[in-house]
C-alpha cells in the first residue's frame, strides 16, 4: 500500500451547492465517489499529495427520479441500486444488466454511475447501454448547469470533456418512444465474473410492420478510445429489410466506426471478430 493519507487534503461538502463552491475554489481537486477506481490508483501511490473532493455525503445525488420524459439517475447512484431498481429494469433493462456485471457485488455496492463516466475507461460496462439509450449527462459547475449528450462527454481514454470544476450531477435517460423489437447486452470478459471487458455491446432494434428496420442503435465498448455507436451500419440499415446481404454489409461496416487494439486483455482481431459476430447474430435474430 503506497498511498500516504497525511499527504492528502479531503474536502467534504454537505450539499451540492457547497460541492460546486469548493470545487470552484479547488479546481485541482479530484472528485471521489465510490472510490472503486480512484482508490486503486491511490493504493498504488499514484495520487499522493492530492486534494480530494469527497462527494459521498451528497445523498441527493444518489437518488433515481422519474420525470415525465424519463428517469434521472443521480451521479452517485451505485451500480447495485441501478441493478435492483424496478423502474430501471423495466424501462432500461440493458443498463440494469450492465450494472449487474460490473466487478462483483462488493464493487457494485460502492461504484457509481457518475464515477464510472468521469473515469472514462474505454471499457466502461454501462457505456454502451447509455449510448443506445441516448442518455443526457447533467453537469454543474460554478458557471452553472449544463446538459451534454452522453457520447460527447468523452474525449479519449480516461479523458472527458468536463470543464474545470465541473461535476457530473445526474444522467437522464429519456423513455424510448416504443418498445424495441429486439435488444441485446453482452459483455465479453476475460473470465466469468469480476472481469474487465474485452468488448461490451448494447443494441436496440425497431422493425416496422413489414420487417423493415425503423431504427437500429448499436454501441460497442473497448473497441476504440471511447465507447462508439455504429453510425455507419445504423444509417445503412435504416429502412432496409434484414436479409443475409444487408446483415453482412452492416457487419462489414462495423469496421468504419471502431478500431480495436491489442492490449493485455485481448487482441484487436478477436475484439473485431467477436463484435461482428455479436452484431450479426443480433440482426439475424
Amino acid at each position: 500500500m503506497r498511498g500516504a493519507p497525511e499527504t492528502m487534503r479531503v474536502l467534504r461538502p454537505r450539499s451540492p451547492a457547497e460541492a460546486v463552491r469548493l470545487y470552484g475554489r479547488h479546481p485541482e481537486a479530484l472528485p471521489l465517489a465510490g472510490g472503486t477506481d480512484v482508490m486503486v490508483s491511490w493504493n498504488a501511490g499514484l495520487l499522493n499529495r492530492r486534494t480530494v473532493l469527497d462527494l459521498s455525503p451528497l445523498r441527493e445525488w444518489s437518488r433515481i427520479r422519474r420525470t415525465r420524459a424519463g428517469l434521472v439517475v443521480g451521479a452517485l447512484a451505485t451500480h447495485a441500486r441501478i441493478r435492483d431498481d424496478a423502474r430501471v429494469r423495466a424501462a432500461f433493462p440493458l443498463l440494469a444488466e450492465a450494472a449487474s456485471v460490473i466487478g462483483a457485488a462488493a464493487i457494485q455496492n460502492r461504484g457509481t454511475l457518475g464515477g464510472n463516466i468521469a473515469n472514462a475507461s474505454p471499457a466502461g460496462d454501462s457505456f454502451p447501454p447509455l449510448a443506445v439509450y441516448e442518455a443526457v449527462v447533467h453537469t454543474i459547475s460554478p458557471d452553472g448547469e449544463r446538459r451534454s449528450r452522453f457520447l460527447n462527454v468523452f474525449e479519449g481514454p480516461k479523458a472527458t470533456a468536463l470543464r474545470p470544476a465541473e461535476l457530473i450531477a445526474a444522467v437522464e435517460l429519456p423513455f424510448l418512444p416504443k418498445r424495441p423489437t429486439r435488444q441485446i447486452f453482452r459483455k465479453i470478459g476475460t473470465r466469468a465474473a469480476q472481469a474487465l471487458s474485452k468488448t461490451v455491446a448494447a443494441g436496440l432494434l425497431w422493425l416496422d410492420g413489414k420487417g423493415r428496420v425503423e431504427e437500429l442503435r448499436f454501441a460497442l465498448g473497448a473497441m476504440a478510445p471511447t465507447v462508439r455507436r455504429l453510425r455507419t451500419a445504423e444509417a445503412f440499415l435504416a429502412g432496409q429489410r434484414l436479409t443475409p446481404a444487408t446483415v453482412d454489409r452492416a457487419v462489414e461496416l462495423l469496421g468504419e466506426d471502431v478500431a480495436p487494439i491489442d492490449d493485455v486483455r485481448s487482441t484487436g482481431a478477436y475484439r473485431l471478430a467477436v463484435s461482428r459476430a455479436l452484431l450479426g447474430g443480433f440482426l439475424r435474430g
Binding site: A104, T190, R191, A192, A195, L196
Partner: peptide, 11 residues
Amino acid sequence: LTNYLIPTALD
C-alpha cells in the same frame, strides 16, 4: 489480480 486472472467461484 485484475489482469492476471485466477478462477472465481463462477469460473
